[in-house]
Design a protein around this nucleic acid. Structure first.
Length: 156
DNA sequence: TTTCTGACA
DNA sequence: TGTCAGCA
């Protein structure tokens, strides 16, 4: 399991996935001229190339932002408006990431239903969110030992 | 070949 | 924004 996780991390190591301006341009349908202009205005960023060549390098994160800006631009927003929308989306993603990484401790199965471990509720109990295939999500407090047991079952 | 900056439209 | 020049 740990090996699989490591492989997934390796495959999705976005930090090492970078593009040159021509690549980003064809990927997003945003001209190189626009990309340079947007950068000049501080709407997007690029890195210097480590090999000393004078050519921009864009990260995956920038690719996402450019894609979003292109989308809003096509939807009729002005350049600044599109940038603002993209920025707002970035904030939401950050918030969601924080929410998930701090609140979600893993999946489990309770009475045949998928459940989400939301962490310690108090000294004795753990809060679980029950996610039925049908019907509404509801919550349940399990004794810590019980919670540990259902979590362990999933890993096995 | 590709990218870069600056200039003109 | 597109395009072209003149470099690296």
């Amino acid at each position: 399991m740990a090996e699989f996780t490591a492989q997934v991390r390796e495959a999705f190591d976005f930090h090492r996935l970078v593009f040159r301006i021509g690549e980003l341009s064809s990927m997003t349908d945003v001209s190189a001229r626009q990309l340079r202009y947007w950068e000049k205005k501080g709407l997007i960023t690029s890195r210097e190339r480590e090999d000393g060549q004078q050519a921009r390098v864009y990260t995956f994160k920038t690719f996402i932002k450019v894609s979003m800006m292109k989308y809003f631009l096509d939807a009729g927003y002005t350049l600044n408006g599109a940038a603002k929308q993209a920025q707002a989306r970035e904030e939401r993603v950050k918030y969601i990431h924080k929410f998930i990484s701090t609140g979600m401790k893993g999946f489990a199965e309770i009475d045949g239903q998928m459940a989400l471990n939301l962490g310690r509720f108090d000294d004795e109990q753990t809060l679980m969110a029950i996610l039925p295939d049908e019907g509404e999500v509801h919550y349940k407090l399990l004794p810590n030992a019980e919670a540990q047991r259902v979590m362990a079952e999933i890993k096995a």
